[in-house]
């Protein structure tokens, strides 16, 4: 067992579980949680290989990806909170059927 194998195994497992979140859970909050898992899985590999190759560009990309993912979460939750019109209904993906601009 070496570090690269562990990094790949952890990242692929996290990415798979994130995908399962997107496919199996209908609540929008849970879907955002799944996306976060996938982003983190990608970040693990980016950081691991950046450090391994002593490549500062990889670390910089991971940092920018982290900031962009945080912004994506903010927009996601803003959408989730704004779509909750009916007081008795939870925000679920099946409620999103149309786009309006």
């Amino acid at each position: 067992m070496n570090a690269e194998l562990v990094a790949w195994a952890a990242a692929s497992a996290l990415f798979s579980i994130g995908t399962a979140f997107l496919l199996l859970r209908r609540q929008l909050v849970a879907m955002v949680v799944g996306i976060e898992l996938m982003v983190n899985a990608a970040n693990i590999l980016i950081v691991f290989h950046a450090v391994r190759r002593a490549d500062p560009q990889g670390l910089a990309v991971a940092l920018l990806a982290l900031a962009a993912a945080a912004a994506e979460v903010v927009v996601g939750f803003a959408l989730i909170l704004s779509m909750r019109n009916d007081e008795n209904e939870a925000p679920e993906s099946s409620h999103l059927r149309e786009l309006s601009g």
Binding site: A3, A7, A10, I44, V47, F48, V51, R52, L59, A62
Partner: peptide, 10 residues
Amino acid sequence: LFVLVGADLM
């Protein structure tokens, strides 16, 4: 994990 690989800042 980030700390362990040496990317403390991350």
